[in-house]
Amino acid sequence: MTDTWSVGKHVFTSRLIIGTGKYKDFAENKRCLDASGAEMITVAVRRVDLKARGQDSLMHHVPPGSVTFLPNTAGCYTAEEALRYARLGRELGLGDLVKLEVIGDQRTLFPDNEATVEAAKILVKEGFIVMPYCMDDPVVCKKLEDAGCAAVMPLAAPIGSGLGLRNPYNLAIILEQAKVPVIVDAGVGVPSDAAKVMELGATAVLMNTAIAGSKDPVAMAAAMKLGVQAGRMAFLAGRIPRKLHAAASSPIEGMLG
C-alpha cells in the first residue's frame, strides 16, 4: 500500500513541501522542485511590479496543476492583514488552501498565537483549508485544530535559522494529541533535521532556506528528499526503546571456555 497523506481533497505521496523564495532564478527553483520530489510548494502574494512588464514568472516554470500551490500570508503582523492576503491569494484562482502566518515579532519571526487562532477561525468559516504556521506549543496546536484547521504547522526553530528541531519533546506531545496532519515548518538546516522530525512521526516537513540558501541547492533538495524518506521509513519501522545500558548483539552461548 502506498504511504500517502492528505489535506482537504489533496492527496500526497511526498512528505517534503518546499518554499519558492530566495532562489537565484525560477529555473533553479524548478530544478530544486524536481530534485526534491515535492508535490506542494508555498508561494507569496505580492504587488505586481508595473515597471517590469513581461517579466519572468514562477508560473511559467511551474505550471499550475503540476504541483499543489499553497499561498502564504507571510509578512503579515495582524489577523486583519493576514485575512486580506489570504483572500487575495484565493482570488488568484488556485484553490482554497492557505498557509496562515501571522508574525508576532520581527527579530525571531515567531508567530502571534492569539492572532493566528483569531484569523484561522474566520478563514475556516470562509471555506479556506487553513494550514497555520504556529509555535511548537501543544496548547496552541490544539486550539488551531479545534478552530477547524486542516493541519497544524509548528516550527522546528525560527524561520531561516537552520537550527533544527529545538524542542523534540513538545513536538512529541503535539504528535500524540493531533488528529490533523502535523507539518513541521521552518528551522530545518540539514537532512538529518528533517529525518529527526519524520522519525518522531511528523506528517511532513516544509522548508525553504535550507535548500535555497545552500551552496548547491539542487543537491541539497535531493538530500532533503532522502532525509525525509529515511525518517519516514524509520518511523514506520518502529525504533528500539532507549536504554541506559548495553544489550549485546552477539550471543553469549558458544563463547570459549
Binding site: G19, V43, R47, S57, M59, L92
Partner: peptide, 10 residues
C-alpha cells in the same frame, strides 16, 4: 487599486 500576483515565498 492593488494588483497582486504569486511570487516566490516560503
Amino acid at each position: 487599486i492593488e494588483i497582486v500576483q504569486f511570487v516566490g515565498g516560503g
